[in-house]
Design a protein around this nucleic acid. Structure first.
Lengths: 156, 156
DNA sequence: TTGAAATAGTATAAATAAGGTACTATATAA
DNA sequence: TTATATAGTACCTTATTTATACTATTTCAA
């Protein structure tokens, strides 16, 4: 309840890793998964989604991998999370509030449900908070502002 | 993901219903479940938890039911939610931050996990928001500040 | 004193979501 | 042409959520 899935956690780790790379440099799914002890398949799935959502760019083939497409300042928590888990909603009755434009909703119970309005408001407030948290801030906030990965030595 | 369970929804509805009753008046689980078309067993389970958590008081036996124990102004969203669903945590690595006293955590991966700190901060911010939402506010915000229940007519 | 209505406590089943793995296809560098 | 890498899915397992059921106890009232 009210928790993010591990996918988002893996996605954050991947994004942090990529954001720290020198400009234009690639990191492969294996590299990242090895560095933090995350299953390769999982990390691959996450990176595929991040790519599809336009957060990263992929280069296929040997020596391929992923690189960031946007600056960390322009990436926020809720966007990343939604790219990996689908639209965030506090309850079923909230669907199309993604644009933050107010009171659009698609709850079948709208005329009966006594808590639709308040739930909607709370949802908006949470979105506000999460959209204010940028990847850049998150990186600032990681221990020592430097990642301590299992093996910083990459085989390449 | 990042959503509350239906239990919380039912709990909110029950609390709103009870809060609207005249002082000292009781409402039974059946009354409430009938009024909003919620399964009786479910509503009973929710009310049992609310009672155990000290939000409401129960009177057993025929003509029994539940009544509020605290004013709606002193009840907040996150407290209610946690009474019904257990401690709120954005990720596994967050456990004892309930008191809002900062950086206590019990993550086994604390020395390795690169996102423990930022996740912790985001969790705190969400808690702040949710603890600022009172039941009184929620009631204010329900359509027309008056509940439109299926049957306002109670058989008692 | 008996029966109906209510809560208390717990157990369990069913449905849904999350977490994780595997497979086939395609691209690229050496 | 082979090894390495991503692309796209499909699938299985586990955990959580949702819902129901059962037994016991309490209380009012006929």
């Amino acid at each position: 309840m009210l928790s993010m899935t591990k996918k988002t956690g893996y996605g954050l780790i991947a994004m942090i890793h990529l954001a720290r790379l020198p400009e234009k440099k690639l990191a492969s799914a294996r590299e990242i998964s090895d560095a933090y002890g995350i299953s390769l398949s999982l990390m691959m799935n996450v990176l595929k989604k991040l790519c599809a959502a336009g957060y990263v760019e992929s280069v296929r083939g040997s020596r391929g991998g992923y690189r960031m497409l946007r600056p960390a300042e322009e990436i926020n928590f809720v966007g990343l999370m939604e790219a990996l888990e689908g639209p965030m909603k506090l309850a079923e009755c909230i669907t199309r509030q993604v644009e933050g434009l107010g009171s659009e909703m698609a709850c079948k119970l709208i005329s009966q449900c006594p808590i639709a309005n308040p739930i909607h408001r709370v949802n908006s407030r949470i979105r506000e908070v999460l959209s204010g948290v940028t990847l850049a801030e998150i990186i600032e906030d990681t221990a020592g502002s430097r990642l301590q990965s299992k093996s910083q030595t990459q085989k390449a």
